[in-house]
Design a protein around this nucleic acid. Structure first.
Length: 443
DNA sequence: GACTGCGGGTTAT
DNA sequence: ATAACCCGCAGTC
């Protein structure tokens, strides 16, 4: 526990330094680098290892375009915002979609001429004005063995689709379009999608925008009802844990849908709390965190300084892998997924530069993260949208389809991670050892 | 075709 | 001087 607290301090040390990206000399005595942050927000700084492939590529899940700052040493990128429907339409379940603006100016202009995948209305680009009325800017600077990152401004818009999601769905959509003739209207939208890579077909929408309650409901599994028994509890607990670790958030969720889902989820949390602890007290670590994540109306984006940091990652030790395995098992149980994700490997935990040997490979550091080699990201739940194009009877797939808002694990007094409490509340070991196997017969 | 990095240039503060 | 933005080019995927 103390070591975990130390890790927190280390993390803070590397993210809240007094340096500025424009400093002539940047710190060279960096003790520990940060794990790559896919959704950096607010005025944050990170120091990545120069070995970090994502940092090398200056990646971000925000739609960032290059901006010339006439300084070849510092790469500056500004946020493009998010593309929404100008009619402010909602899907049948009340959810909205947030498309990723094309980075290329021409492609973006073309994208905005296309129709909304939901209502065929015009699309609208919501510009980012989170930095004094100007777009949020990210700065990258390579110095020796480190890559310094600094973000200025807080995004004032929803998160767009990730690049990976857009790419995955584009390829999926292309394949789908090739085999399935549709109405002219849908065809038009699909054409638009194929051009922008950002839109969903109407058939896909029920999945993309699937009701959150669906994927948090543990009581049915592909048509198999699971009675209220220890197994359900296990599943609930693991789902809770999954949510704590970032599974189950979707950029497509509206605040309304989040609230709707979270209220029910809150009740589920209370139920778990009552059953496990003999009270409806929500102060327990996992339950508390769940509600923090799903019960509060979410701003567009929270400070993600703790996103996939070594501490949260470390707390996932063991459990996260099993959750990923759970995901794999569940996904594997569906026969309708696209071929690219049919064989999700059970990747053993790996380490990054030896910093956290016990840490799961949450960052999928390097190529895996953005190159789609892996489809399970234990902490960021980086699931390509091809997962969405599955049966609408697959709520568990949707659970794993989102990837935002990694939540820190519960803190106890003095900012110390309480692993024992976490384990107690989540039946971690039980999840690890039994859940995956208990679900196998469902295949 | 789209993304990315680079750099020349313009405009505003 | 600084910052934001536009545009074109070239390399890459």
């Amino acid at each position: 526990m103390l070591k975990a607290a130390d890790d927190i301090m280390d993390q803070e040390d590397s993210t809240s330094q007094s340096w500025d990206i424009n400093d002539i000399k940047l710190p060279q005595d960096v003790k520990q680098t940060d794990w790559f942050q896919e959704w950096p927000d607010s005025y944050v700084k990170h120091i990545y290892s120069s070995d970090d492939k994502n940092a090398q590529r200056h990646l971000s899940s925000w739609a960032m375009r290059n901006t010339n700052n006439h300084n070849s040493r510092i790469l500056k990128k500004s946020c493009l915002g998010v593309v929404v429907c100008n009619n402010d339409c909602s899907a049948a379940d009340g959810r909205k979609i947030y498309l990723r603006p094309a980075i290329c100016d021409k492609a973006r202009q073309k994208q905005q001429r296309k129709c909304c995948p939901n209502c065929s209305g015009p699309l609208k680009l919501i510009s980012c004005r989170g930095h004094g009325g100007y777009p949020v800017t990210n700065f990258w600077r390579h110095e020796g063995p480190f890559i310094f990152f600094q973000s200025k401004g807080a995004h004032d818009h929803p998160r767009p689709e990730t690049k990976l999601e857009a790419e995955a769905r584009r390829s999926t959509q292309k394949a789908h379009t090739a085999v399935s003739p549709t109405s002219p209207r849908l065809k038009r939208c699909r054409e638009a999608e194929s051009l922008t890579g950002e839109m969903q077909s109407q058939e896909a929408l029920p999945l993309l925008l699937s009701n959150q309650e669906n994927y948090i409901s543990p009581c049915s599994f592909n048509g198999h009802l699971i009675d209220k028994n220890p197994q359900e509890q296990i599943i609930n607990n693991c789902l809770s844990l999954a949510k704590n670790y970032g599974f189950g958030r979707s950029p497509y969720l509206t605040e309304h849908s989040q609230d709707t889902g979270s209220n029910k989820y809150y009740e589920k949390c209370k139920e778990i709390g009552s059953r496990e602890h003999g009270s409806g007290d929500l102060s327990g670590p996992s339950v508390c965190n769940m509600y923090a994540d799903y019960g509060e109306p979410q701003p567009w984006n929270k400070n993600t300084a703790l996103e996939r940091n070594p501490c949260t990652d470390k707390c996932c030790n063991g459990s996260a892998l099993s959750l990923a395995d759970l995901h794999c098992e569940i996904v594997s149980s569906q026969n309708c997924m696209d071929s690219s994700i049919q064989h999700v490997p059970n990747i053993p935990p790996t380490t990054k530069a030896g910093y956290h040997p016990a840490r799961p490979n949450t960052g999928l550091s390097g190529d895996d993260f953005y190159e789609g080699k892996l489809h399970v990201n234990y902490n960021s739940s980086y699931i390509p949208s091809s997962f969405y194009h599955l049966s609408s009877e697959d709520p568990y797939l949707i659970m794993n389809s989102a990837h935002h808002h990694q939540q820190p694990l519960p803190l106890t007094k003095g900012n110390e991670w309480d692993f024992e409490e976490e384990r107690k509340y989540t039946n971690l070991d039980y999840c690890n050892n039994e859940l995956v196997f208990s679900l196998c017969p469902l295949r």
